[in-house]
Nucleic acid binder design. Structure first.
Lengths: 202, 202, 202, 202
DNA sequence: AATGAATGAGGTTTCATTCAT
DNA sequence: CATGAATGAAACCTCATTCAT
């Protein structure tokens, strides 16, 4: 039997995968997690449903890779901007700025991952315990407190607050093109510096 | 889980409705928005699916009432604790404390509403724009800045940050029984006071 | 036990039944057979669903009575107008006129019965065989042919055609208030008379 | 590798669609519109419910195609038999004969379409106004009256009567295999000719 | 690699009916 | 008589997944 010519020829594995991930991001952003179906992703990619399940055997694989690829990119971009400061305050500022710069550069992908994270909970029930990203921040702050560099506010709460502020700005940036994540970073840095460095009045 | 070991007695309208709302909250917390089906709610209540749709014609009605009932309760409890301070810092502290006290008292309900809010997007597309709760905080802060009572940090960013911190603590409290929202409130108040009142060094 | 005061006091059986039948007719006309539910009938009557099933244990009882009551009324009204003519043509004319007069007087009820008839098929499968109403007409025509009073067209086909024309006019009248069933009757009488009495040309 | 024998082999799109339409016709004829469910159609086709919704996304699509396919076939078959007569009476006879010949050839399909038509009301409320098929007939008759070729009976009523007679014969033929639509056509032609051509006595 | 067909589970909703009060 | 609550079946539809080609 003759092979039927395909409208959408092979893209050689990796390219096809990247295309599908792109489409998945779009669908997540526009239709939300609940509205994201394999069929819709395929439709936007202009391929058949089978193509999606060929490259990503299950839906979880697809969405998991949406998350993982963002983490990979974020790790690279943020990793570069790290460690080049010797003060704790400086490191915090770098962390906040690099995080929100990344968000400003990839608002849609970030939003997509938020959709997934809010809905695809790990099999072992709700997380509970401290978020690892906050934990890292907390340790950083505690280090500064140990050396007396920064004031003695609750490190855990401040860490959570910084993380939450970054995430909120990201969420906003993903939906609202007029939002300004980089400005948010600067103002947040100011707030954090005041909280950590300032001398309380009187 | 919360089901009273009753075969299926008539509960007389309001009680049944309350029971179903309770069960819906449980399901939302444990299974997430995506895992919340009318059937599961009915199963936990020990009644048939029809009972749920009898009292809440559509799923949206059910989840909407989960949200609305929390807002009602929060409005009452938080409303009482408001306005009794004449300094902006005092009002902020009251706001933070009453919010997190409420969260400490209703962690599961709060978490359930978060699940709904994160997923049930309004028909008119993604929100965009400033969150009304943050806006209220921002105005409060700006009022203090106009009178010179507090420092000139960015009011919008600080408002978002406070709201985000409260929400993060709420999310944590809903999943982790060892979390301490009231402690979070105190530490957050300290952080905010420092950011707004302290004199920057040098 | 104290009797609970009712918003919709007892109508004494028969009146309530009549009211429910009226409402059922309305629903059938406006929403069609498929849209006719016990709940909707109750809603229009301003009573609870239970009232309907109290008076008409099953939906079939309700709709069956809609049909039966029309037949009763039609039987009375048409019965009076019958038999007072001694020519077959006269009897046919009387039949047609009395049928369409009845339709003109009860368009909604007629339409409702059509909805039911088209959908509620007898348990023993589709009817098949000659419609009894047509059969009566056919016999009448054949009687006239036996005496030579009317021409020798096919009595069965003419009978079916007359019946179908009456029904079509009824269907029209039920939906279209500008329709004129009585005019239709006159014109149909003319057509039938021509078909039965005229001498074919040449 | 040997091909695993499939219980429900792939029929290649069009064939499967045709099969499903056939089954839908059967169900409509035997169980009526109200008794026609997607599940029942699937059961008769020996496939799963999903297959039906795969080929016809909604029930309306399925039933709509039942109607449309009949119209297509009827259009072809009746179109061929049209326009080859120059007298109005001749055209009427051709119309009646071709209609009922078609009915005689496809009694079940015709009956199925009647079920659908009687129940699937257009979204814009009850129709009201003249049926387009009757309208065409009326214009034909009026043309003949304008030239004096045929008598001056009411064209609208006669048109409705002819249409109704054809439909009644079709309904009968679909349920009763002993019915004779072609015979009906001949007798109906005779009746119509007498009504239009004969000279009234006296 | 890619496709279209098929599956079956599960979701929401409607509804006739039953029953205690 | 009347009601509101409850039931359970059945409807339509969506979807992740599997499979032959």
């Amino acid at each position: 039997m003759r092979t039927k010519p395909s409208l959408t020829p092979s893209l050689g594995g990796l390219a096809r995968k990247a295309q599908l991930l792109d489409c998945a991001v779009d669908v997540l952003v526009e239709l939300g997690f609940a509205g994201t179906s394999v069929a819709e992703v395929a439709r936007r990619a202009g391929v058949s449903k089978g193509v999606v399940t060929y490259h990503f055997p299950t839906k979880e694989d697809l969405l998991g890779e949406v998350v993982a690829s963002l983490y990979r990119e974020a790790g690279e971009q943020i990793g570069q901007a790290t460690g080049d400061s010797d003060s704790v305050i400086g490191e915090l500022a770098t962390y906040i700025r690099s995080n929100l710069t990344f968000v400003a550069d990839h608002p849609r992908h970030v939003r997509a991952v938020m959709e997934v994270a809010a809905n695809m909970r790990p099999a072992d029930g709700p997380p509970g315990g401290e978020d690892p990203l906050s934990a890292h921040l907390r340790e950083l702050i505690e280090r500064g407190q140990a050396t007396g560099e920064v004031a003695d506010v609750d490190a855990g709460v401040l860490a959570m607050t910084i993380r939450a502020s970054i995430d909120a700005a990201a969420a906003r940036a993903a939906c609202d093109p007029t939002a300004d994540p980089r400005g948010h970073a600067e103002h947040l840095v100011t707030i954090v510096r005041r909280a950590l460095l300032a001398t309380e009045p009187r």
